[in-house]
Simulated assay, not measured.
Amino acid sequence: MAPNGRLAGKNAVITGAGGGIGLETSILFAQEGASILMADISAVALEKAKAKVLQLVPDAVRVETKVCDVSKEADVQAAVEALDAWGGLDVIFNNAGIMHADDADAVSTPEHIWDLTQSINVKGVWFGCKHAVLALRRNGKARGSVVNTASVVALVGSATPQLAYTASKGAVLALTRELAIVHAREGFRFNSLCPAPLNTPLLQDWLGDDKEKRLRREVHFPSGRFGEAVEQAKAVVFLASDESSFVNGHDFVVDGGMTKAYVTPEGPAAPAPVNNALKDKLDS
């Protein structure tokens, strides 16, 4: 643990901490001197994740875990209020989310998959924001940082249909922007992390063995690769720290240039139909 780390003295809740971005963020937060509560719906994943954090950061200030289903307000509230005994919450990373294998287009997505996705990805973030504000006020904090995981698909169309997920992440951006304005005078900052598709278990499980679906994703990266979770975690450290004290309401995009690139799938393109009327007009 860095005694003068960028997050020294801060108490943080990280949801979805059992793997992926949440785990990598937990490791970096511990290295930067934060006391962390790792929350996840899976007790088994949490214990493995905690063991990894302590293995890599044996002198961490404090690392605790709490099983938490973010779609249930009581679970989120309990996780946030647990930090009252530490001096109160300073940072929350609302990262837990799902991208279900049955999530498709408007015609094919089952209603229960839509509802499940919104319940976790949107309502779970709302609960985290709500109880973060209450905790920051309750503990007399003059400042606090809330980071919500959104996605680049909230900014650009997805190459592969995943409508419930895309809609949920668009909601996260809108929610975050509004809260950033509402609570700015209290010193509470709200920012969204917008990752590109990453090399995480969540994405790999969703892609499965579908080579066409995988190519439709990979081809849009100028670098030709998916991002790594630790690259996102480094951005979260910045947003959580006082280094970003004037960053508020931002859609913080970490995508390897994906949303700035014009890339088309490899292989021969089908010839476009000729519009003879337009051609004649242009030639005249």
Rank of each mutant, 00 (worst) to 15 (best):
E24Y: 00
A45N: 15
A164G: 10
V133S: 06
V247A: 06
E178S: 15
K141Q: 05
D105E: 11
A45F: 01
S42E: 09
N248P: 05
L56W: 01
P268A: 13
K130R: 15
G128Q: 00
N139V: 10
T25V: 05
D69R: 03
S245N: 14
R143L: 05
P58H: 09
T264P: 00
A60T: 14
E47H: 12
E24W: 00
K52P: 00
A261P: 07
N199C: 06
G33L: 07
S151N: 07
L173S: 06
K66V: 06
A8E: 08
V61C: 03
N248T: 09
A180K: 03
T149Q: 02
V57S: 08
I27R: 08
A82K: 06
F93Y: 11
G124C: 04
K279Y: 03
S284Y: 04
D103H: 10
R189Q: 08
P197W: 05
N4T: 09
L7K: 02
W86C: 11
D251A: 12
P110M: 11
V247R: 04
A233D: 13
M38W: 01
V61N: 09
L173T: 15
G267Y: 03
F29N: 04
G227E: 08
P222M: 07
G5N: 09
V153D: 11
L198M: 14
K141E: 03
D115W: 01
A85E: 13
A196M: 12
